[in-house]
């Protein structure tokens, strides 16, 4: 029985390449090189790795990192059952043992001492030491580690440790070009070309406000959400208010400005 069956992708995820990132990734995969995907929130990093996992036919084990995550959450821990204590592999160990792509989303959210456990996995050794269990797992030949992070969003003090980040090859992502973003919205959100154009216009307006009171502009993901609601019959302005204005900010003045963009684009 395939222990990673639940992590395999059954359908092809939609992904529209912005450049030659697919080819670049395939080269890196050929060497099982650890990859770092960086870019703003909602620009398609996670979708890209899903697409690549599907394309390469590998299971994808995703972990959203957070501040409370410990090394045990990655590698596994002893739990108690009727017979006594029993070891349970964590998601990283699963991927290492059985050969999958382990994707640590927003890796800088995890504490730096947690991410150190990936160091021996990401150099020539390719081993994972389970010190509590007294076992050293040699990585499966199909194991690859991929991490993502958003360089703009975090504070400087939360950057990756230099010793961690230099173990990765990096791919930079950004929001697609206007035409590209339109195509994504039409394909993913089911909106008409016209609506997609206006939505992209709103997003561009909001991205101009980055660092002027907004931490991040409206992302492609938000546009897709809005397009879906519009396609299912909701009034465009209400859909935008729901998925963009109110979702992006709590500041009433910023919300007013954003809604101004929406009103300017949708009569």
């Amino acid at each position: 029985m395939d222990p990673l069956a639940g992590y395999r992708l059954r359908e092809e995820p939609f992904y529209r390449p912005a450049g030659n990132e697919v080819a670049l990734y395939e080269h890196a995969w050929a060497h099982r090189m650890p990859m770092l995907l960086k870019g703003p929130t909602g620009c398609g990093k996670t979708r890209f790795i899903e697409y690549m996992a599907w394309k390469l036919g590998r299971p994808l084990i995703t972990l959203a990192c957070n501040e409370d995550m410990t090394a045990s959450d990655l590698v596994g821990r002893y739990l108690l059952d009727a017979q006594g204590t029993a070891w349970h592999d964590g998601p990283l160990t699963l991927a290492v043992r059985h050969g999958g792509i382990c994707y640590l989303d927003e890796v800088v959210e995890a504490r730096q001492d947690t991410t150190v456990v990936i160091h021996p996995l990401t150099d020539a050794r390719r081993i994972l030491a389970l010190d509590k269990k007294g076992e050293v797992v040699q990585a499966h030949s199909d194991f690859q580690l991929v991490v993502s992070y958003n360089p703009g969003y975090q504070s400087r003090s939360k950057d990756m440790k230099a010793s961690t980040r230099q173990r990765f090859a990096a791919l930079e992502f950004d929001y697609p070009t206007a035409e590209g973003e339109c195509a994504v919205i039409v394909a993913e959100g089911g909106a008409s070309e016209d609506v997609a154009k206006q939505l992209v216009g709103i997003a561009h307006r909001s991205r101009a406000l980055k660092n002027h009171g907004l931490e991040e502009g409206i992302s492609t993901r938000m546009l897709v959400y809005a397009a879906r609601l519009i396609a299912s019959g909701l009034n465009a302005r209400q859909a935008c208010s729901m998925t963009m204005t109110q979702a992006l900010t709590d500041d009433p003045e910023m919300a007013e400005a954003l809604q101004g963009f929406v009103d300017a684009h949708f009569p």
Binding site: R205, G213, P252, E253, M254, A257, G260
Partner: peptide
């Protein structure tokens, strides 16, 4: 919502977004 706060900030942002 709009009455409670001075609209100046939101208008500044609106101008920045619309005109760049």
């Amino acid at each position: 919502m709009a009455e409670a706060t001075s609209p100046a900030r939101s208008l500044t942002w609106l101008l920045l977004g619309l005109s760049g």
